[in-house]
Design a protein around this nucleic acid. Structure first.
Lengths: 344, 344
DNA sequence: TTTAGCACTCGCTTTATTAGAGTGCTAACA
DNA sequence: TGTTAGCACTCTAATAAAGCGAGTGCTAAA
């Protein structure tokens, strides 16, 4: 539908606008090396491209700016193949060459490096803990009334809850309880714990433990992991550098969304298939993100999706570079995690 | 040195400037209810106050603005006694009436409520974990190579480290080790752990544990709590509302400081005596905080300082209100914590 | 000592002016 | 028929000029 020349012009407009941030005029365009025809010709073509909705004017006699549709087309069909500099590659691989033993740290580091390299904001949705398998439960009494319940998973994830104990409970009962729990529940995925306790543990408790009812309720409440999945954010402040957010009100609107985290959680969860996904402007379907694009990738272990890693920037984003970087980080992260999980 | 009338004028200028954010002129002042004399008189007095350095002009024919010295005098001698609204008081006390069993949550909540009520940023320096006493150490093997070491203190604080085990170690040895550690170290403050291990535990290890050397080093590294004390921040984005930071560059400078956390840590640590402390502008001695004031208070248990809670805002801050709120929160937090600790 | 009055100073807002970048259209050219 | 040069026109952004208003300092009178 679009001629080669139109495609060329569209591509150069987007490239140039991403580079400079200013609307692109026909004269500027005609001076680009790839362009062999005159500014008048370009003007004609631009009029067509505008009619088709790929580019827009900011005012009647201004240069052109890519529309959302234009960005979409650019991302889908015109992305220049960007080779990352070896510096970038090295920076990224350096984190994965270090021996890092903590999942959270590794993820946090990935997010940080990505936001540093892109100058945008990075969001990572951590692996859902629900599928991790219980390694051990410990209940450690702190004083007469309270104890801290600690759950450790096979991935090294640790969660703690401070709980109140019934005043009458015997220390030996707590110990007995913990033993029963570990005996029965080790290896069970966290999201099945509550169930399993009801079906398999409850009746044993009933036999052996005083106050079993109270204890069961306590367990249920502290095992009910309301924390859905950890979210890691890095480079929030990079948004301050983007000229599209030099307006303090827009900035505030955006930060509101970022700080809420809820929306992001939804957006990142949506991404289910493998590979890179680019959502431009209103495609995100979040009020206040009309001027933002979100590029997401999943990371996985042995083909099974673990979480999502994403870069948030203005629609005028360096798509090509960000996609390449994100791809690399996601791949390396997946590799690192696969190694990690294989140790079991 | 200052006449009563000058004091009155200074006070009204500061109050009015804090309220409106605009330089205060003699005519505006003369209309205030407390003021019984004419604008010309005020002009004369203002000239004197300016000469003494308490107020400044933003330009030659502008109204007056408090200087840093002016704020200082105001805070030291002219603070209007503010009675908090009962709403404010209720809001604050509501958090402390709930039963909250986790120290971190309680502190985080205090910070949040304070930033919500003041519309400024709140920083809390958590209790230094170093003085907490060890309740138990657990080492939970995850797979052949790694284990997670968990430290629990008498306050319910939990810290974890993923560690590598030497391939040759026997599970029974790990168990033995943990037993020895708990036997010898329970009740020892965290910052003495390393020491105690060297003096009391090392030789026992030597007798009973293979690879004792490696294990000791591992323990040392995972017990060396480089985390000095947790810092909780709340309401960072409130700074976006302050007109003094409508300039994006100033905003960025400030956020840089806030995100670094290092400076704050230093500032909050400095505050050692009891009571409220107000640091205005350059008194903070941090580049980029010339336009900010920091109001700090300590919270404590039984008279012993545990941590610091602070509100950061522009020099044009509602000192009176913030001081009252901070005072209340710090007091209530101390009470709540005293209750908490008494349970032992 | 206080106050009224007045000349004067600036910052801020509005209005004009201009330069520059860009467009659309037309007519001529290959 | 597609391409290009040329031209009139539009609009922004930057700069200058003008007027308003809030405020000052000084003087002289009460």
């Amino acid at each position: 539908m679009l001629t080669d020349r139109q495609l060329l012009i569209l591509k150069v407009i987007v490239d140039e606008f991403i580079r400079s941030g200013h609307p692109v005029g026909s004269r500027t365009l005609s001076k680009k090396e790839d362009i062999t025809f005159s500014s008048a010709t370009i003007r004609n073509e631009m009029a067509d491209l505008e009619e088709l909705g790929f580019i827009e004017k900011t005012h009647i006699s201004s240069g052109r700016v890519p529309s959302q549709k234009g960005y979409r087309y650019y991302v889908d069909h015109l992305l220049p193949p960007v080779r990352l500099t070896s510096e970038d590659i090295q920076t990224i691989q350096s984190i994965f060459h270090e021996q890092i033993y903590e999942l959270e740290k590794l993820i946090q580091k990935s997010a940080q490096i990505l936001s540093d390299l892109t100058n945008y904001t990075t969001v990572v949705l951590g692996p859902s803990v629900k599928e991790h398998k219980l390694k051990t439960i410990q209940i450690i009494p702190l004083n007469a009334e309270t104890a801290v319940a600690i759950i450790v998973t096979d991935t090294g994830y640790v969660e703690k809850h401070v709980v109140t104990l019934p005043p009458s409970i015997a220390p030996s009962d707590v110990e007995k309880m913990v033993n029963i729990l570990n005996e029965r529940l080790t290896g069970v995925p966290l999201d099945e714990l509550t169930n399993k306790i009801q079906t398999e543990v409850a009746h044993i408790f009933r036999e052996h433990i005083e106050n079993y009812d109270y204890m069961l309720r306590m367990l249920a409440s502290s095992l009910d992991l309301n924390a859905p999945a950890q979210m890691f954010l890095s480079g929030k402040m990079n948004m301050l550098r983007q000229p599209e957010f030099s307006d303090i009100d827009k900035l505030r609107a955006l930060f509101n969304i970022i700080e809420q985290e809820k929306e992001f959680y939804r957006l990142l969860r949506k991404h289910n298939q493998q590979g890179i996904q680019v959502k431009i402007g209103t495609e995100n379907d979040v009020e206040g993100m009309e001027n933002c694009s979100l590029i997401t990738a999943t990371y996985s272990v042995g083909g099974e999706k673990l979480g999502t890693i994403a870069v948030l920037g203005p629609t005028r984003m360096e798509y090509s570079r960000v996609i390449s970087l994100l791809n690399l980080v996601a791949t390396d992260l997946s590799k690192a995690l696969t190694m990690w999980y294989q140790k079991d």
